[in-house]
Simulated assay, not measured.
Amino acid sequence: MGELHVRSVLVTGANRGIGLGFVRHLLALPNPPEWLFATCRDPKGQRAQELQQLASKHPNLVIVPLEVTDPASIKAAAASVGERLKGSGLNLLINNAAALKANSLDTETLKDMSQVYTTNTIAPLLLGQAFLPLLKKAAQGNPGSGMSCSKAAIINISSTAGSIKDMLLWESEQCLSYRCSKAALNMLTRCQSRGYREHGILCMSFHPGWVQTDMGKKVGDMPPLTVDASVGGMLKVLSNLSEKDSGSFLDWEGNVVPW
């Protein structure tokens, strides 16, 4: 498979888990991004130490403060990134930040449902809106035909838990708000793919697998997939995406996941 070549990337929730994995893998590419924006709530806090260490070694890595549930924070992040890019546009937006509450159908609450939905579904919508001008600039700056992640793309990290058809692991882990929010995120991806097609922006959802992260370990046994295996697989898939893939739901190996 090909190798991802992209000038600028932004990853949300980049201080741990899959987000941090994306940062590490992107920095390690033979041709890493000229600009790699890694967002987290508190760039100077304890949870961002690994990001801080990476940024001290890689001048192309910029840590951006971002609270994805706060519209003002999203707008400030978009403005900050725009200043750095100086008119060149953002090629790849990876909406990775997510929340999980292991509530059942009987124990789900308004507070938890609202919090999870805001983080997992509404935030990717608002981030797409805020970064649309920069994504459009990137697409216009690559006038070639078709779509690709090197041109302009929004990648939403979803989950097979949001598959209405499969309903995997329901008997062991209901995680109601998480399932509902990811199913809604998949619909958002479909809407973005239709709405942003005219601008040349590719949009798709990823199931990263059941990964050995803090979130992944909340639901039962030890997850079978390492962060490196998941992220490495997704980057291979990203490098080969084209117009036909916009609006799709794929896993880390490029297989189609049922809606």
Rank of each mutant, 00 (worst) to 15 (best):
N156L: 02
A72I: 05
E3L: 05
K111H: 07
N96A: 11
A72M: 08
N15G: 12
K217V: 04
T69I: 14
A98D: 01
V81K: 00
P143A: 05
L90V: 14
I201N: 01
G146P: 08
L93C: 04
L127W: 01
H5F: 09
A28Q: 14
N186K: 09
E173T: 10
L20V: 09
K75R: 14
S114V: 04
N120W: 11
T121Y: 07
V219S: 15
Q174I: 01
P43S: 13
L126M: 06
H25W: 10
Q53H: 12
A77C: 10
A123I: 02
I155T: 03
M1V: 09
W252C: 00
S88I: 09
K111W: 06
I63L: 09
M113H: 14
P223W: 04
F249W: 12
S193V: 02
G128H: 01
K244S: 11
N120M: 08
L29H: 10
I74R: 11
E3A: 09
N240V: 13
D251W: 11
L188C: 06
L100Q: 12
L51G: 00
N240E: 15
T109I: 05
G45P: 04
Q192Y: 06
S73F: 06
L126R: 13
K111T: 13
E108W: 07
L185Y: 05
N103C: 06
T189E: 11
L250I: 10
V64D: 08
C175N: 14
K165Q: 13
N31T: 14
S56D: 06
T226K: 07
L110T: 13
N240Q: 15
A99V: 02
W252K: 01
V257R: 03
S104G: 10
L26N: 04
P223V: 07
Y178G: 02
K86D: 15
A184S: 13
L135D: 08
L110D: 14
P133T: 03
R194I: 12
G232A: 00
N120G: 00
C40Y: 13
G2P: 10
S56L: 10
D245H: 13
V116S: 01
G200N: 05
E108C: 09
M1I: 08
R194L: 13
A229W: 05
E34Y: 00
F249L: 02
R179C: 02
G195Y: 15
E173A: 07
L235Q: 10
Q174F: 07
C149T: 15
R41P: 05
A78W: 03
L4P: 06
L61V: 06
Q52A: 08
Y117Q: 02
G195D: 15
D42S: 12
T121G: 03
C40I: 07
I74T: 12
K86R: 15
L92S: 07
G82Q: 03
L127E: 08
I63A: 02
A38W: 14
G144W: 12
C180T: 12
T107M: 01
L20S: 00
V231P: 03
R179W: 11
P65V: 06
S159Y: 04
H58N: 13
I154L: 03
A97V: 02
D70W: 14
A130P: 00
S8V: 08
R190I: 12
V6L: 01
H58Y: 13
S230V: 06
V211G: 03
Y117D: 09
P133D: 13
C203K: 01
D214N: 05
R47D: 15
G220T: 11
I155R: 01
T213M: 04
L92K: 02
D251T: 12
